[in-house]
Design a protein around this nucleic acid. Sequence first.
DNA 1: CGAAGCGTTGAGAGCCGTCAAACTACGTGG
DNA 2: CCACGTAGTTTGACGGCTCTCAACGCTTCG
Lengths: 232, 232
Amino acid sequence: MRQEEIEQVRHLPLFASMEDHNRHELLKGAFLQRFPTHVELIREGEPPDFLHVVVEGQIEVFSRYRDRETTVAVLGPGASFILAAVVLDKPYLKSARVLSAGRILMIPAETVRAVFAQDAAFARALTQELAQVYRGVVKELKNQKLRSSLERTAAWIIRHDAERGDTGRFELPFDKKVLASRLGMAPEVLSRTFVTLKAYGVKVDGRRIEISDRSGLTKLAAPDSLIDDPVT
Amino acid sequence: MRQEEIEQVRHLPLFASMEDHNRHELLKGAFLQRFPTHVELIREGEPPDFLHVVVEGQIEVFSRYRDRETTVAVLGPGASFILAAVVLDKPYLKSARVLSAGRILMIPAETVRAVFAQDAAFARALTQELAQVYRGVVKELKNQKLRSSLERTAAWIIRHDAERGDTGRFELPFDKKVLASRLGMAPEVLSRTFVTLKAYGVKVDGRRIEISDRSGLTKLAAPDSLIDDPVT
DNA sequence: CGAAGCGTTGAGAGCCGTCAAACTACGTGG
DNA sequence: CCACGTAGTTTGACGGCTCTCAACGCTTCG
């Protein structure tokens, strides 16, 4: 990795507090790799070779079972993935593919574990990172088990709007097909859900979403900070 | 805590590798408390006060939303819970109640964070523990999103039988009501699912389960180590 | 221009939840 | 020891949610 590239990633929470020479150790064996759309970066069941960090672009994390497939998450810059598999040296539980082209920082799994064993600050950063993502999955599990498709969709719209500054209008960051899978429903169901949401003041035109009756939508979704809030 | 009680918990993976004086520090402020059935130990939304470790008995971890409720996990001896909330000092995402009476080790959250900041071995143990439970929730999310009720129930039976030594017969460890919630369905649905499973050689009599056609059941459930295997 | 993929819509079926009633198991108090 | 109440479980009826299959329009791209 070039010095300039290291500068781009050293401020990520995962690396920020660690000792300089350990960060150097960690990053000197790393690659910053470009990937085109559709490439499958990792495949569930395989042993972990690299810790991946999204630097640019969008990554879809998904999982297969029989002939089905579901999207677990869509990651943007700053997010790392398959950290737990790397730490425990156990097979990936999820696959990942490039949704929109970008660059991925890849750190050899062996190096991550070695530095983890040496650098206490890094170990603590990993703990915090894992605690964070753990809570994220728990929220997603609650979202799935406790809400209907309509509620999940409404809640997603409110949350996504909030992340974009509560302007009441935004563009879908990826295909509806992916959103449907992410929300745990068939594409046809999402399509019909959008139709239903018209009555709640949600206008959908292609990728453009507009919220005209926030209170009605909020009443429908019943947002809950213990499910929807990304920071709590 | 008495010395004798400390002996009972010091060998848990969470405490095994840490320095003696830090373990002492951690445990000296801890309580080993008895709780009767039905008591609600923690309530989602509240700030974390103690790290809880099950020493004896059964704990149901669940979550509420609107007038609904779902069981996230049922924990037995050796399991800790709400570790992530304690580490990050953020509100509990889940509630917990006593399913069958027992004893809980309660370590003040403040102490956990203090020792975490001091003892590198403890920090690493936390990382591993969190990585482990993280993977557990991911598997559960896949289980929910990728399988039908029938498949989840069949897979649960196979897995639970395997944990008991593949004898082909075992007793439900808790009420069917709880199992239904754990598996993500209404009690009535579980009841009907058991009826359907008769055709696959599963006999249900009260709490007694018997598997007579393992291959048929396996074909139905399509067990997947990346969903069902507790150690992978 | 044609092919391929996405999104929408319709039709139909199956899965799942709710409500209600009846039955069972269990523990408590008389 | 029995009567009773409570909670868990089962069953039926019903409706709604969600999935699948299929057809069609639209956009994109080679």
